[in-house]
């Protein structure tokens, strides 16, 4: 029974991590849009390449943030949450 409980905890943590990374879609679309527009801008005005590129990198980095929040949560779910929850379970059994 205990093995089943621990198995459910670990499996659900892994599933949660996978579902959390669905948030990677958002930054993908956003950064793609940003780069497409930057390419258009450079095509129209090649002399402003430097300014456009640095602004684009800046915007990409800001757009990436939501994806990175998801990454941090996924990593917490994989590496931190199982140990924590198994400890809680053991404590509940001992009590």
């Amino acid at each position: 029974m205990l093995e089943l409980a621990i198995g459910i905890i670990v499996g659900c943590c892994a599933l949660g991590a996978g579902i959390a990374m669905v948030a990677g879609i958002g930054p993908g679309i956003g950064e793609g849009n940003a780069v497409a527009k930057a390419c258009e801008a450079i095509g129209r005005q090649p002399e402003s390449k430097g300014a456009v590129t640095s602004t684009m990198l800046m915007g990409c980095a800001v757009a990436e943030t939501t994806g990175l929040y998801a990454l941090v949560i996924a990593i917490l779910l994989i590496f931190v949450a199982p140990n924590l929850l198994v400890d809680v379970l053991m404590g509940a059994i001992a009590a």
């Binding site: 990436e64 943030t65 990175l68 929040y69 990454l71 941090v72 990593i75």
Partner: peptide
């Protein structure tokens, strides 16, 4: 929070 997570997440994702 977002500044710390942005830098940390980018480097950590590379390591992973």
């Amino acid at each position: 929070v977002s500044m710390a997570f942005r830098h940390y997440g980018n480097i950590l994702s590379g390591v992973v």
